[in-house]
């Protein structure tokens, strides 16, 4: 509520739900690292899922954007996935197929992320990146920080397994100014 999200959701006519511990169910993933993990059942029951991450710096993975945001639907001992973070995030994308990914890069955190950070670490870019391929969105998002998609472990591995496209030259990118 302190962030203002609750009020915005209400104005837009939506319903704000808080995480209910009972809605985590063991889901088969059969990935490289994660075979099975408790995931939030609502994302599989919903008609469409839209991921709206904020672009931030991260100590371990360099950046946290679309692919890392799916940690939010993981239950159980999710702090353990940092031991094999990149591979775990790719495994998640095997079963979580978002309809749309909207990367909020209006203001990005370039240091001390994802939770520390000072106003000095924020850059205002007023940019929003939307796409259906979350790997591509992350790859493009990396460029906002002066990095390449291949600098992000999870993006590189996802591209290798054909779960998305990392190569920006192969993408149809439309820039719209509002």
């Amino acid at each position: 509520m302190q962030s203002g999200i609750a009020d915005s959701v209400k104005t837009a006519g939506g319903e704000l739900l808080y995480v209910d511990e009972r809605k985590f169910k063991d889901t088969k993933i059969n990935g490289q690292v994660l075979k099975e993990w408790p995931l939030y059942t609502e994302i599989f029951e919903a008609d469409k899922i839209i991921n709206i991450p904020i672009a931030k710096h991260h100590g371990l993975s360099n950046l946290t954007m679309a692919m890392k945001n799916w940690m939010g639907v993981m239950g159980g001992l999710r702090k353990q996935i940092h031991q094999k973070l990149d591979e775990s995030l790719v495994d998640l994308s095997l079963v979580i197929k978002p309809t749309l990914t909207i990367l909020d890069a209006v203001r990005i955190l370039v240091n001390n992320g994802p939770s520390g950070g000072d106003v000095k670490d924020v850059r205002t870019l007023n940019t929003v990146i939307a796409g259906v391929d979350q790997v591509a969105v992350d790859s493009f998002g990396a460029t906002l920080f002066g990095m390449k998609g291949s600098d992000l472990g999870c993006v590189k591995i996802a591209d290798k397994y054909g779960l998305g496209t990392m190569d920006l030259s192969k993408l149809n990118i439309k820039k719209i100014k509002i």
């Binding site: 031991q83 001390n112 939770s115 520390g116």
Partner: peptide, 15 residues
Amino acid sequence: TPCIVCEEVCPTSKK
């Protein structure tokens, strides 16, 4: 083994 969850959650301005 990699981890640093502690660094991730540390809330101070400069961590």
